[in-house]
Design a protein around this nucleic acid. Sequence first.
DNA 1: CGCTTTCTTGACCGCGTCGTCCACAACGGG
DNA 2: CCCGTTGTGGACGACGCGGTCAAGAAAGCG
Lengths: 204, 204
Amino acid sequence: MLTVMARPRKFDEQQVLATVRERFWAGGYAGTSMDDIAAATGLGKGSLYGAFGGKQHLFHRVFDDYCNSVVDATAQQLRGDDDDENAYARLSAHVHAVAAATVADTAQRGCLLAKGTAELAEHDKTVADRAHTAIEALHALLKDDIAACQRNGDLDANADPGRLAALVLSVLRGIEALGKAGADEEMLTDIARTALAVLPRPAN
Amino acid sequence: MLTVMARPRKFDEQQVLATVRERFWAGGYAGTSMDDIAAATGLGKGSLYGAFGGKQHLFHRVFDDYCNSVVDATAQQLRGDDDDENAYARLSAHVHAVAAATVADTAQRGCLLAKGTAELAEHDKTVADRAHTAIEALHALLKDDIAACQRNGDLDANADPGRLAALVLSVLRGIEALGKAGADEEMLTDIARTALAVLPRPAN
DNA sequence: CGCTTTCTTGACCGCGTCGTCCACAACGGG
DNA sequence: CCCGTTGTGGACGACGCGGTCAAGAAAGCG
C-alpha cells in the first residue's frame, strides 16, 4: 500500500513565519488582523488557518520561535568557546550589544518577548509561561558567564553569581524598556557602561 | 448677560477615568473596545464620546494621568522633606517598594506606562512622547536623590549622579518587565538589594 | 484517465468595532 | 410656560474581525 501524494505547499513556512512575526511585532496581537497577515504573506486566509490553526496558535508559534532565537543569540554571545578567560569580555560585549541594538531601534519597537508579555501575560497563560521560561534561560546564561568571570578573577568570587546575573538581566530588560520609551543613545550607553562598572571586583 | 445653565453631568469624571484606566490597563488599547468601556463605566457611548472625544483621546488622557501619577508617587517617595540625611533611606525604600509592588502584581499586569509604550510607542507619537517625558522625569528624581546621597556621604561623590540614576532607573524598569514575565519574589527582591549594594560607596 | 489526498483561495457568515445621530432629558433664566 | 444650552443613551451605519466553506488545483499511483 503506497502512500498517496497530496498537493504540495506553495509557500515556504519559515518565510511566512518571519513575515507573520514582523507583523505581530509591529502591530501587537490584538492590533494585527488576519487580513493584515494574509496581505503581508500573500497567502489566502484559508491557507493560513489550514497551516497554522488560527490567530492565537500563529501568535504562540511566532512568540515561541522568537523567545528561542533571543535565548540562542544570547547563548552564542555569552558561551563562546567555553573558556573563563574571555567570559568578562563576552559579558561586556553582550551588554553593549543590547544597548547598541536598542539605540538602533529608532522605531522604538522593542523586543517581541517584552511586547508580547506586556500585552498578553495577564490573560494568556501560554504566553506568560513561555516568557517565564525565556527569562529563566537568559538568567541561567548570565549566571554561567558571571561564574566564569569569577573563576577567572574578573569579578569578586564572593558575590552570588545568580544574584549578579539577576541584576544584569534586569538592567538589560530595563534598557529595552527605556529604549521603547525614547531614552537617548547617551543614556542607554551609560547604563551599559555603569552596569558593568558597578559589578563587584575581586579584592586586591 | 447671565450664563445659561446646561444639563449637568450625571457621572463623576474622575471615577469614570479610573474605571477606563483599569480597562485599558487590563486589555490594552487595541484589545479594549468602547463597548467594554461603556459597560464598565455604565455610561452610554454617546456620553463617552461627548465627554472625552473618542477612543484615542480617552486613552491619551488616561495614559497622561497615569504617567503623572507614577512621577508624583516617585517624587513623594524620593523627595521627602528635602534633607540629604535620609536620601539614601528614601532611595532604598523606593527601590524595595517597586520590587514589592511587582511581587504583589500576581496578575502580571505590570504598569500602564510600560504597557502603553510597548503597544503604541512605535505608531502613536503622543504616547511615545508622553512616555519619554515620564522617563526623563523619573530619571531627574533619581538623580536628585542620588546627588543628595552623595552630599550626605552615603554614596561615592566622585560618581556621576546622572549615570547612577540611569542605572537605577533601568533596574526599576527591568524589575517591572521581569515581573510581567513571571520572575519570582526571590529574584525581584534580590535585584533590588543587589542594585543598591553595588552603588559605589565613598572611599574610606 | 480516475482516484485519493491535501492545498489554495476568497467569498461568505455571524458577530464585533468605532463613531454618529437624534429624540429626549435636565438645568437656569425670562 | 418657552427658550437655549449641554448631557444621555442606544439604535444605527459602515466597516472590520476570526473563522468557515466549497470549488478547483496539484501531486503520485494504478
